[in-house]
Design a protein around this nucleic acid. Structure first.
Length: 437
RNA sequence: GCGUCGGUGGUAGAGUGGUCAAUUACAACAGACUGUAAAUCUGUCGCCUUCGGGCUACGUAGGUUCAAAUCCUACCCGACGCA
């Protein structure tokens, strides 16, 4: 299935990279594209209007968080997440699979999305399927995952079916299969076990999704009859014509399957084959990576995944990683980085990141990033942002987020343009020379 | 003028004979942050160091003691009360 049209406009010669257009019921996404993260139905410190104006084409919210608060049923009652949060463009939701990891094995440890595999303290101690005594908020079973709410401690059980159900209630255009994100420090044996679980969950996610989609199609047909509209004989799902006519919640949703496999070439390729052969509308590439492994993993996977479907590298967003991903055939990226580091005082510039809290910026009346066209750079100085951060004024986080989101969207958009103009590697060289110094 | 209480590191404020270079918070300085447990977290925070330790420090100056930020005396400063 490929429910949303994905058109590849131009490829990077002899590489996997490409520029394309993905059409969703809420508009087009020009790829490659950076997906801004709005976990709880808000891009932190930005209004949806600002987010859009900063060049964001699509936002990603989170199943687990919205299920806990305010509850997916409430969001559904509100008319879906688009309407609830007033985001009119394309939207994605993550399945909660990452929280299996971040609230599970990674809980309380210094393990995150990108880790240094050389650090022995990160090694996961001997696994026991029962309870290894390590405190965590998520426990994995073969059928699903028990979560202890990080908000109030209450216990919840999420299965692939439950995740898909929640994501249908939320109503994003693109939703993800429920998966298990593993740490690269896990043993090969465990990676294999987790991978077969992820594959089984992918299948169950897909089945549940198709079931809910056909029910939605039925609802659409009924709605049609009720309103006296003639069903469209050329469109058995009855979807494309309804994009403008029907409320958000009756619009079709695309499901992306997620490839895992840790650091292993064999497992990554196996996963790409298995997931790639399933009837997904696109694919996510997941996992916690050792930085040095990332490009290999992406390449292995994208050589196998069907070329005509979009690919999303989950949770990656450092500028140098974006170049790596685009070069290796990734169409979509999401990352909390730009917004999180912004709130913590770090800003992107063409010459690398700066921490605006550093003493040198107190009396620096220059702009954050010379030549940047964002509202922050056009109107405020480094000294002013320095003051806002030191004074803990929330405008600091807002102005910094404006800059970082603009910067990263502009960067990916420039990459796209460079592909179209056949000068991707020139652009990459130019940018990284200044950025990585 | 008399009396009472008090003067501790950039700030606030613990400590009231040894375990005190001195709890804690804030500030300061730096670092981290990659499908958001995150407007968060970590480290440093008297001087010197061959990282073992050495030196100078709790208003000032003396004193008691093996040992004082802690006890005594005088002085300086502050708050309050009485004249």
């Amino acid at each position: 299935m490929n429910i949303f049209n994905f058109k590849i406009e131009k490829k990077i010669p002899d590489f996997l990279g490409r520029a394309g257009v993905l059409t969703t019921p809420h508009g087009e996404i020009l790829t490659p594209s950076f997906v801004v993260v709005g976990t709880k139905g808000t891009v932190k410190a930005l209004t949806p209007e600002q987010t859009k104006d900063l060049g964001a084409q699509v936002v990603l919210a989170n199943t687990y968080h919205l299920y806990l608060q305010p509850g997916d049923e409430l969001v559904h009652e509100a008319g879906g997440l688009h309407k609830f949060m007033n985001w009119k463009g394309p939207m994605m939701t993550d399945s909660g699979g990452f929280q299996v990891f971040s609230l599970g094995v990674a809980y309380g440890k210094e393990i995150s999305k990108v880790v240094s595999i050389t650090d022995p303290s990160l090694l996961i101690s001997e696994r026991s399927s029962v309870n290894d005594g390590v405190p965590r908020l998520a426990t994995i079973g073969n059928d699903g995952v028990s979560f202890r709410s990080h908000i109030d401690g209450s216990l919840h059980y999420i299965t692939p079916e439950k995740s898909i159900e929640i994501q249908h209630n939320l109503g994003a255009d693109i939703i993800f299969a429920f998966d298990e994100c593993t740490s690269p420090t896990e043993t090969e044996t465990y990676q294999e076990e987790a991978l077969s679980r992820t594959h089984a969950w992918a299948k169950r996610s897909l089945e549940k999704h198709l079931q809910l989609e056909s029910k939605k199609a039925e609802d659409v047909a009924n709605e049609n009859r009720r309103c006296g509209r003639a069903p469209n004989p050329n469109d058995e799902v009855g979807i494309s014509d309804f994009q403008e006519q029907y409320p958000s919640l009756l619009k079709p949703q695309a499901l992306f399957g997620i490839v895992q496999g840790g650091r292993s070439e064999i497992l990554r390729k196996k996963s790409a084959k298995v997931i790639g052969a399933m009837d997904f509308d696109g694919f996510g590439i997941g996992g916690s990576f050792a930085k040095e492994d990332m490009s290999n993993a992406v390449k292995w996977v994208n050589e196998i995944l069907p070329e005509e479907k979009p690919r999303h590298l989950l949770g990656i967003g450092e500028p140098e990683d974006l170049f790596m991903g685009v070069e290796n055939g990734v169409d979509l990226f999401d990352c909390v980085g730009p917004t999180r580091i912004a709130r913590n005082g770090t800003l992107f510039t063409k010459n690398g990141k700066i921490n605006i809290l550093n003493a040198g910026f107190v009396k620096d009346f220059g702009v954050i990033d010379e030549g940047c066209e964002c509202e922050t750079c056009k109107n405020y100085t480094r000294a002013y942002l320095s003051h806002l951060f030191r004074a803990k004024e929330m405008l600091g986080a807002m102005l910094a987020s404006i800059h970082n989101v603009y910067f990263i969207n502009k960067l990916v958009s420039d990459m796209r343009q460079s592909i179209l103009e056949d000068r991707f590697f020139e652009f990459k060289g130019e940018f990284l020379t200044g950025y990585l110094k």
